[in-house]
Amino acid sequence: MPDVTHHPALAHQFDSLAQQSEATTLGMWVFLVTEVLFFGGLFATYAIYRGWYPDAFAAASHELDVTLGAINTAVLITSSLTMALAVHAAQLGQRKALMVFLAVTMILGAAFLGIKSVEYYHKFVEHHIPGPSFQFEIRISPNDGGNPPGKLADVELLKAHVQIFFSLYFVMTGLHAVHMVIGIGIMLVMLWLAWRGTITDEYYSPIEISGLYWHFVDIVWIFLFPLLYLIGRHAH
């Protein structure tokens, strides 16, 4: 390769920026496939237990705060929009717009995490964190005949299954939140690259692949929200 076309961002192992961008984009797609299987193990576990204990899952789901969940969904969808706008700005080489959109995306991501931690705090106060201190009040419809000692034990069993729901809830949303934190970190790096002027209309693939990641994390939430928050809705 003659040296005249050598772009400062072109890594030594590539022949052209196009090849480099194709390679990094493919790399991110392959990584996302890995991520799909990573969450896939959890979704499979969720599907099996929900199939076994539909009532416990519905009762537990009822305890989640749908309003906060819905707000968070809206926040994330908006952040996906601003992310897409950031990629668009990068392609056009609009550095200022790029930086603004990246910053807005980060703020929305942080807002999501803030709301999520409020929800976690509520669960903590209500003792809905699985483990020895777990407490859960079952609101059973009053059509059953009384049988005091047994009723207590029956509730214990349901409580165990409710705990499985909450275990899955915390692991799934927790892992999603970890992905959000990483995403915000990536946005911070992108903001720095944009501020430094590394990102140009010739070389914007870092923004593009960060966008892929961000959208993926949003999509995971789009699945989590109905599966965790909404399954209890039709039951009552």
Partner: peptide, 8 residues
């Protein structure tokens, strides 16, 4: 499961 006694 081991650390927090979450049931799986």
């Amino acid at each position: 499961e081991r650390l927090f006694h979450f049931g799986f």
